[in-house]
Amino acid sequence: MATGGRRGAAAAPLLVAVAALLLGAAGHLYPGEVCPGMDIRNNLTRLHELENCSVIEGHLQILLMFKTRPEDFRDLSFPKLIMITDYLLLFRVYGLESLKDLFPNLTVIRGSRLFFNYALVIFEMVHLKELGLYNLMNITRGSVRIEKNNELCYLATIDWSRILDSVEDNYIVLNKDDNEECGDICPGTAKGKTNCPATVINGQFVERCWTHSHCQKVCPTICKSHGCTAEGLCCHSECLGNCSQPDDPTKCVACRNFYLDGRCVETCPPPYYHFQDWRCVNFSFCQDLHHKCKNSRRQGCHQYVIHNNKCIPECPSGYTMNSSNLLCTPCLGPCPKVCHLLEGEKTIDSVTSAQELRGCTVINGSLIINIRGGNNLAAELEANLGLIEEISGYLKIRRSYALVSLSFFRKLRLIRGETLEIGNYSFYALDNQNLRQLWDWSKHNLTITQGKLFFHYNPKLCLSEIHKMEEVSGTKGRQERNDIALKTNGDQASCENELLKFSYIRTSFDKI
């Protein structure tokens, strides 16, 4: 039985969820670079991206490699990797027998973001014989899940209580170790020597080791999670996991709180800001991140802002960003909400898709409305799209047979046209069989910064309504002859009103 693990408890099935942008060198404390989270699957090609990484700022997932063999891993080693800020997950990587050479110096898994409450997941690794993470000293947050690894031993010899604050939620089941077939031998045991430290858990006094050649490092209890030197002297209180010299914040392997210019500090002093819960960055760093993602459509890219001495992905609820200094300031009234469309555009074809934009005031991208039916549609669209004030790209209304009016965009005031449909149009209306009105132009103002209007096959939309939009939106004169079809717009509506004058002759039985 794995020490510190839980057996036999019912657990939810383990679901495996399925960018080499360097964020800056980590400095003297770390020998390499800070790398983003990685999802490495199918083959070993991307694994080489770990070569210079000291910190993975995010998670590391290595999974679904069915053609790899043990010899493929023999020359692979990433000794610079010290810390993973989120979680480490391995799933069905064939041929991998140990992690001792792959990650010989991995010391800390912070667990800032977890995989279903777990910071370390080893699942269905069919050839893994031992973990071998002999320098792993601290899992700051989260638990361990090690399950269905039929060859995995050296679990009962690990004292997880020396690595985690609590072992109650560890789930370590259905491994070879369960069948008591392992016969784990710690260093020196074969020669009758006791080389590794022994600890007591559940009444068992057991030597602690990761492999037959690597003991588990056990520091004096007084050192807590700070770690200790090879001689057993406690590291500085700002260290986490390990250090090369005692009581020196510049000799830590990793930091308990924050890293700044080669030393570990309790908090980031001005003019620095907390970033990702582990390091200090200056304003320029946060500003660069903001600008890199301002026009990016890459998933996970955030326009970072500053709030409460932190550089964070977005302002919290009730705050909006001051564009001059990136500071989050309290909103006066309802907060603006910028919604970034991942692929640059979004099609609204149902109430469900409209709900995804609920509360958005600025759309960074283009909207395509293609709704053919739905219950209580006008009210639903207004509830979900009615706060949109600005669209950076274009607005396209296409084959939306259920629409009679666009009044559900009740606050839309600006279409920038930074991206144009077919390279020309910022407003595009095609084949809307029941569209009769755009907006009530006596109450609604709309500016279209650039781009043209396109109207074709809107049989109940009168040309007068379209011409009014040209005047109000500032697009009059931009359109070419064929942009607004004269014969297919309003051709099934009563669009022309003329005053009919009647004269009559009164007659009676005795007068003409």
Rank of each mutant, 00 (worst) to 15 (best):
H28A: 06
L29S: 08
P31R: 02
V34K: 10
P36R: 14
G37P: 06
D39R: 14
I40T: 03
R41H: 01
N42L: 06
N43T: 07
L44Y: 09
L44Q: 06
R46A: 15
L47W: 02
L50D: 00
E51K: 01
N52P: 13
C53G: 00
C53I: 03
E57K: 02
G58T: 01
H59T: 04
H59L: 01
L60H: 00
L60V: 06
Q61P: 00
I62V: 13
I62D: 00
I62S: 00
L64D: 15
F66Q: 06
T68K: 11
T68I: 02
R69C: 12
P70H: 10
R74L: 01
R74K: 12
D75T: 06
L76N: 01
S77K: 05
S77T: 13
F78Y: 12
F78L: 05
P79C: 02
P79Y: 02
I82R: 12
M83Y: 02
T85Q: 12
T85F: 02
T85R: 14
Y87E: 00
Y87R: 00
L88S: 01
L89H: 04
Y94R: 09
G95P: 00
L99E: 00
K100N: 13
F103D: 00
F103N: 00
P104N: 00
N105V: 04
L106D: 00
T107D: 02
R110I: 09
R113I: 10
F115V: 13
F116W: 14
F116S: 12
N117A: 08
V121G: 01
E124V: 02
V126G: 15
L128E: 01
L128C: 02
L128Q: 05
L128R: 01
K129N: 04
K129A: 13
L131Q: 02
G132F: 01
G132T: 02
N135P: 03
L136C: 05
M137L: 08
N138I: 12
T140R: 10
T140G: 05
R141D: 15
R141A: 03
G142H: 01
G142D: 02
G142R: 01
S143Q: 14
S143W: 09
V144I: 14
R145I: 06
I146N: 01
E147T: 12
E147G: 09
Y154A: 10
L155F: 08
L155P: 05
L155W: 11
T157C: 07
I158D: 05
I158H: 06
D159K: 06
S161K: 05
R162K: 15
I163Q: 03
I163E: 01
L164I: 10
L164A: 10
D165L: 11
S166I: 07
D169E: 13
Y171F: 11
L174T: 12
N175Q: 11
N175I: 10
N175F: 12
D177Q: 07
D177W: 11
D178T: 12
N179K: 15
E180K: 09
E180L: 09
C182I: 05
G183T: 06
G183L: 05
D184E: 05
I185N: 13
C186F: 10
G188N: 03
T189A: 13
A190P: 09
K193Q: 15
P197Q: 12
P197L: 10
A198V: 06
A198E: 15
A198Y: 04
I201C: 14
I201H: 14
Q204I: 03
Q204F: 15
F205W: 15
V206F: 15
C209Q: 02
C209Y: 02
W210I: 14
S213N: 07
S213G: 11
H214S: 14
C215W: 15
C215K: 11
C215M: 15
C215P: 14
V218N: 10
V218W: 11
V218I: 14
V218E: 09
C219K: 02
C223T: 01
K224Q: 06
K224T: 08
S225L: 08
H226D: 10
H226K: 12
H226P: 03
G227D: 11
G227R: 04
E231N: 03
G232P: 07
L233M: 05
C234M: 03
H236L: 01
H236I: 02
H236Y: 03
S237A: 12
E238R: 04
E238Q: 15
C239N: 00
L240R: 05
N242K: 07
N242A: 11
C243W: 01
C243T: 00
S244H: 11
Q245V: 09
Q245T: 05
P246I: 06
D247I: 02
D247W: 05
D247S: 02
P249L: 01
P249Y: 01
T250I: 04
C252A: 01
A254I: 02
C255D: 01
C255N: 01
C255Q: 01
F258Q: 12
L260A: 07
D261L: 01
D261E: 01
D261W: 00
D261G: 02
D261R: 01
G262A: 04
R263K: 01
C264T: 00
C264Q: 01
C264L: 00
V265K: 00
C268P: 00
P269V: 08
P269I: 07
P270W: 11
H274R: 03
F275L: 09
Q276E: 15
Q276R: 08
R279W: 04
C280E: 00
N282R: 15
F283G: 04
S284H: 05
F285R: 02
Q287F: 15
L289P: 03
L289D: 02
K294W: 15
N295V: 03
N295C: 07
S296H: 10
R297K: 14
G300C: 07
H302W: 11
Q303V: 07
Q303R: 13
Y304D: 02
Y304F: 15
V305G: 08
V305F: 04
I306C: 02
H307Y: 09
H307V: 04
H307G: 02
N308S: 05
K310T: 08
K310Y: 08
P313S: 08
P313V: 03
E314T: 12
E314L: 04
C315A: 01
P316W: 01
S317R: 00
S317D: 05
G318E: 05
Y319W: 15
T320P: 02
M321W: 14
N325V: 05
L326P: 01
P330L: 09
P330W: 04
L332R: 07
P336F: 03
P336M: 08
